[in-house]
Amino acid sequence: MSRPELKALKALIEDHAPARARKSVGTLSVGGGLTLHAGEGIEVLGPARRAWMTAFLRQHPALRAAWVQGEANRLCPPALEQQGVALSRILFFERLSPGEGIELALQLLRSALFGAIIFDGMALPFAGREAQMRKLQLGAEDGGALLFFLSDRSQSSFGIRVRMEAEGADAVEFTRVKGGTLT
């Protein structure tokens, strides 16, 4: 097949493919504002990553969230409540392996009830990471959710749209922003 034919075929497919409407789920108000769309991955590093996450949940009171932790729970729920996050909208999971975490996340995303899935201290295995991320991304796109990865070490993945270093609930430094104009 020649190049013009391929181009014509591509245009034909694009014309007939159903448009995927990107659902806006939230905004990052730090640094001038960035609209976040369903299916996007946000990686939060730094010592204040959980504080930043709490502040984000407070800013978006309609989001229902699942906080998936790799190790035993270290979060202090009274602090979340104190910060203005209603505990009734958060499901906590602890001591889950990455495989279990991904399976659970896909299950939660299929229900389309959650606006945020937070992986806390759960490093995705290097082998097959991109495939897992893609699965999660597609699930989150359909379920209208955002994916947050809280970690002390960065995980390189194409699915991460925003990467930030949190040194305080409202003091973050963006190290990667794809398709945005955050400064």
């Binding site: 709490t54 270290r74 979060l75 104190q82």
Partner: peptide, 11 residues
């Protein structure tokens, strides 16, 4: 939301 002062730590 209950407001208890001072703020407790997240972790």
């Amino acid at each position: 939301v209950k407001r208890i002062e001072p703020a407790r730590p997240i972790v």
